[in-house]
Amino acid sequence: MSKEKSRTTRLGIFVTLATIIFIIVVYNIGNKQSLFGSTFKITSVFNNVNGLQKGNNVRYSGINVGTVDNISFLSDSTLRVIMTLDKKIQPFLKKNAIASIGTDGLVGNMIVNISPGSGTDQVVEDGDQISSYTRIEAENMLNTLGQTTDNIALLTLNLLEIAEKINSGEGSLFRLINDSIMATDLKRAVSNLRITTQNINTLSSQFRSSIEEVVQGKGVLGYLLHDTTFEGQLNQLYSNLDTLITTRTTPILNNLERSSLDIAVTTNKLKNIIQDLNLNHGLTGKLLYDTAAAEDLIQILDNLNQGTNRFNQNMEALKHNFLFRKYFKKQEKQLKKFDKPPASSD
């Protein structure tokens, strides 16, 4: 009989333990899905939920606080997302909090992020609606970045063309060098061009730093820019610019020892344009949070492009108009000089 009893006891212990484990697992899973404990509901309206589903997690400042309870159409272009949140976070959630839809990691599930609003406001109540914020989608972001890259490539191409055009202008410039009187002028011009190069470098580093601002910018753009391939592309771009400046411009300088102050002036103008763009539009990470900023970025890059074109045009003008004008002027001067002595000798 006692043997029977101890058997039953051991069986009872086993069954109890197994049941307890089962209940713990059920509770833990349920807890995750906010099925137990007191909860409250809030809603938010979106234009596009980007594949958000019932049961997706809701995060407040990065902590899981609940799940998406339901998604329904409010009108043809607006959707209401009802979220069930843990009662414990209610005191910390203010009415000015902002909900946005994002992804958990690069390939993870969709989540609703609630960010605390700035300043102080009343605590949310059950059933409240908080404002939403449609974040730049990853795809749009990539498109923008693609355009940016195109623009930068175009810029490089333009710079290359300038260099080539300077190269092609060799013939007429070579003659200029033979002119001993021109030598001092040109030496000055070379030093100016050095300044120009420095300015181009500054421009390049400024461009780099504005890109770095983008890189430091938080959010989807942030992590996309942290992507190594993109960074590699950017580096490639920098090195292209560097190569351009060092291998193309320097030999020209060494070989020709020419150019003029106006290049520097023009470059300064270009620099000013870019600085203006930077200052006026405040190309900072903060602004990149919204599409407007992204569009601004495109605008900036377009302007930069235009600026480069202008730089190009200036260079053309420099080459064709100014240099030759000066050349002809000097030619005229020289002719006058040749003519004058006989006259003075008279």
Partner: peptide, 13 residues
């Protein structure tokens, strides 16, 4: 039934 639960459940544990 309890005896079988013991034989089947506990003894296989």
């Amino acid at each position: 039934f309890i005896r079988q639960c013991f034989v089947i459940g506990y003894n296989s544990l």
